[in-house]
């Protein structure tokens, strides 16, 4: 928990809570000021390896203890101390956005694009935010919990257009 204490004193407004998990420390942060915190972690504390960046949708999650619907989860790793740190930023449903960290890691570019693609979380400051896995004209965000599970391909707009075109041709 040493890192949490340090972060808490350095960024009192940003850090919300922290706890120890099986594989490393978890620190929950606020959106505002998060960029400074992670930049400090990268430049001063040696967390140079961004392993993962992903979104989680907590709609209807039973054991939930917080209000916001989404969470953006960062896994960063310190090579010298062999320390894994999980950072979480909670994002409310009404204005789903988060600051982009592409200025720190180019790697985050596609992670953020994927997060936007799957959850509709907008990353402010991202140079090229568009869908990556789904088609560019896809509607809806597939990994959200309220996304229809048994939808048919007929619901996809380009497919309908294609069928129409085909019918007209005979």
């Amino acid at each position: 928990m040493a890192l949490y204490e340090e972060l808490k004193t350095k960024f009192p407004e940003v850090v919300k809570e922290g706890f120890q998990e099986v594989d490393g420390e978890v620190v929950v942060c606020n959106r505002e000021g998060f960029l400074d915190l992670i930049a400090w972690l990268k430049q001063e504390k040696g967390f140079i390896h961004l392993i993962d960046l992903c979104g989680v949708d907590y709609l209807g999650y039973k054991p939930k203890t917080f209000e916001e619907r989404f969470e953006v989860v960062y896994h960063v790793f310190n090579l010298d101390e062999r320390k894994l740190l999980r950072l979480k930023v909670r994002v409310p449903e009404e204005d789903p956005w988060q600051y982009s960290i592409t200025s720190l890691w180019k790697e985050a570019n596609w992670f953020e694009r994927e997060c936007f693609d799957m959850f509709g979380i907008v990353f402010k400051g991202h140079p090229d935010l568009r869908r990556v896995l789904m088609p560019e004209d896809w509607k809806g965000y597939p990994l959200r919990k309220d996304y229809p599970l048994f939808s048919e391909e007929e619901d996809w707009e380009p497919y309908k257009v294609l069928v129409e075109k085909y019918k007209r041709r005979g």
């Binding site: 209807g60 039973k62 309220d146 996304y147 229809p148 599970l149 048994f150 939808s151």
Partner: peptide, 10 residues
């Protein structure tokens, strides 16, 4: 759900 399809509840 008419629009959202089948939902799972824990």
């Amino acid at each position: 759900h008419p629009k959202l399809g089948v939902m799972f509840k824990p």
